[in-house]
Design a protein around this nucleic acid. Structure first.
Lengths: 347, 347
DNA sequence: AATGCAAGCTTAATCGATTTAACATCATGA
DNA sequence: TCATGATGTTAAATCGATTAAGCTTGCATT
């Protein structure tokens, strides 16, 4: 019942632990262990179904071959996909993933980061909910390699792999404008310090400015995380009520759009006739929905590939801390479908 | 830069490691350490921002406080939700989660299980892709506590927390029958040994039998995992072609339904008029879609709560292996929405 | 015969925590 | 005065692996 350890194999083979370790790590030849002995060791390991204790190994080697992934909610399809991509790229390099959800809660994130450090993760991929880089900087003091993904601090010198959210917001809004809409709302989340959402909003505002459309404060809706559905309902009703009369809406992420569509369905609104919509994030639903939802897609695979690459690179070169940080900003991709139609001006 | 260890604190305080360990584990009083010494230790730990190395701790204590979650694909919304629930319940008990995706690939699952054992996970939650309990039984030999979730082997004595898939399949089909449909198809996945899917199919078949509806082999579609979309297209076209003329369909999981809806949208089919549909699994999309999709919902939170409870229980009582295994079968829940309408017999 | 050297293997330290058993020191009671 | 006990603390073993340094052989060389 007891698990088999190196010593057990050594004992059984009547050789030292050292030798067993060398052989099983494939360095038997390099250390000049005779073929016969090696064979004997392999046989015993096989026979007793020996599996090295990676915890002991990790302790000795000072690494865990584990990386931590911190996101707001792993059940959010965007992060679920990120998790999957990161899992694949990380496992190719022999790393495992500990996944943590923060629920956009700063204290929870701090506790999780602390715990991940205690677990000696070799590195971290973080979609942080922090509003300032202060807490993140403490990671640097602790000398834990990390890469910010999805959200970042432009003026802080850290690795990051993000997308150009400003551009995404701008293009989404511009798309609506070019179709003839002028009364365009934007619905986003609070806490409003989340950098990605801030950038999307800035893109929205700038696009309107660029086309000389007056910014209407009433068209800017902030939905609190945690009670999305109810607030979206309220806001949609107001946006469509007579003095406002919104024609189109730019939705800041898949969560909001989900709530929006649910609302649309219950209010029996027709998209795009009664309200046109563009969403950030591209989830399956948007291809399946009728009408199909125009969306700003994030290059998820690329985000995963790059962030893992940068992180592993950082881990390898941990000793050399004066390197350039990787600052990677990927382009989002506006996928035009049917949810914006074409606005025919009421004459 | 170097991380602070127990010895560092001990050295700094001019006391032994033992004492520091005792104090920081909150057992200072129990061991009769003087208040002043305790205070000194706490201060130093604080000052140097000491964080215990959980890997070393794990090695000594023979546990990792980690559990492994093995599913087919963490990007699948059903499993993403499972992961989230499990994360929450596990973290309450101080456990972390290593998540692995098998892609329904037996070899991959074997490799992952091996790796998780090497990492000394304290327990496993597995939605297995194995077709027989043989591989699973080897886990028992290794004395690793585990709970099968979502899929199980009825005749093998393991812990499991599953739902009554037969009942779900039966009720979904019966629902269609009672609405007047008789030409009812079922679309499910291969590999066909996945127990949950087999049970759903059995429920479908039995419901038809019960209501004396002849089972038509052509109405039973097996879609290969890995190329779902293309095959669903082909099958849908055939089902609706003249000699078949299917009126309703029972879709075996959210993956298939997603592909089905995409197909419906492109073929411009109307639900339920041209084809009625019930799906297994209940994802956001189904509430948002127009028409809203009738679905068999799984009690995800309960699955997570129970499986974590059983697993932690098993871990606690690892020494006593002759206990009764937990065999938990939860009820699914048919949520009637709009996608089945009411069949008016062509006269 | 003494030396050098390679081949093959082992000893012991180490990673950072926990824990058992023991050790001082001092006060108390017989 | 000496045993007893409480109080406060520590030495050393342990978990299971890795690795630097060292130790036997036996053989060839001088």
């Amino acid at each position: 019942m007891k698990r088999i350890s190196l010593s057990d194999i050594a004992l059984e083979c009547k050789v030292s632990k050292t030798l067993v370790s060398m052989v099983l790590n494939g360095r038997g030849d390099a250390y000049g262990i005779s073929k016969e002995t090696q064979e004997r060791v392999y046989q015993m390991a096989e026979k007793y179904n020996y599996k090295p204790n990676q915890i002991a190994r990790g302790l000795r080697l000072g690494r865990s071959n584990t990386i931590g992934l911190v996101v707001s909610d792993i059940a959010n399809p965007f992060y679920a996909k990120i998790a999957r991509g990161v899992e694949d790229y990380a496992s190719k390099a022999g790393y495992n993933l500990i996944i943590c959800s923060t629920d956009e809660n700063v204290e929870k994130e701090m506790a999780l980061l602390r715990m991940l450090k205690e677990r000696q993760v070799d590195g971290l991929l973080i979609s942080t909910t922090f509003s300032s880089s202060r807490e993140i900087l403490s990671l640097m003091k602790d000398n834990v390699p990390f890469v910010l993904i999805d959200r970042y601090f432009p003026h802080t010198d850290t690795n990051y792999v993000v997308i150009d959210n400003y551009k995404g917001g701008y293009e989404a809004t511009e798309h609506l404008i070019k179709l003839g809409y002028t009364r365009i709302a934007h619905m986003t989340l609070t806490p409003s310090h989340i950098t990605s959402l801030k950038e999307r909003k800035r893109g929205y505002v700038d696009a309107l400015k660029k086309y000389n459309i007056r910014i209407n404060k009433k068209f800017l809706c902030q939905i609190p995380y945690g009670d999305i559905k109810r607030h979206v309902y309220k806001e949609v009703r107001e946006l469509l009520s007579s003095p406002n009369n919104v024609q189109a809406i730019f939705l800041a992420n898949n969560n909001i759009t989900l709530a929006f569509l649910e609302c649309v369905s219950e209010l029996k609104l027709r998209i795009p006739h009664e309200i046109a919509a563009v969403s950030f994030d591209d989830i399956e639903l948007f291809r399946v929905y009728y009408p199909q939802i125009t969306a700003v897609a994030q290059p998820i695979d690329e985000i995963c590939r790059e962030s893992v690459r940068v992180l592993l690179d950082e881990i390898k070169n941990r000793e050399n801390p004066v390197r350039e940080k990787a600052r990677i900003k990927l382009d989002p991709n506006l996928i035009v479908r049917e949810s914006c139609g074409h606005f025919y001006r009421k004459s």
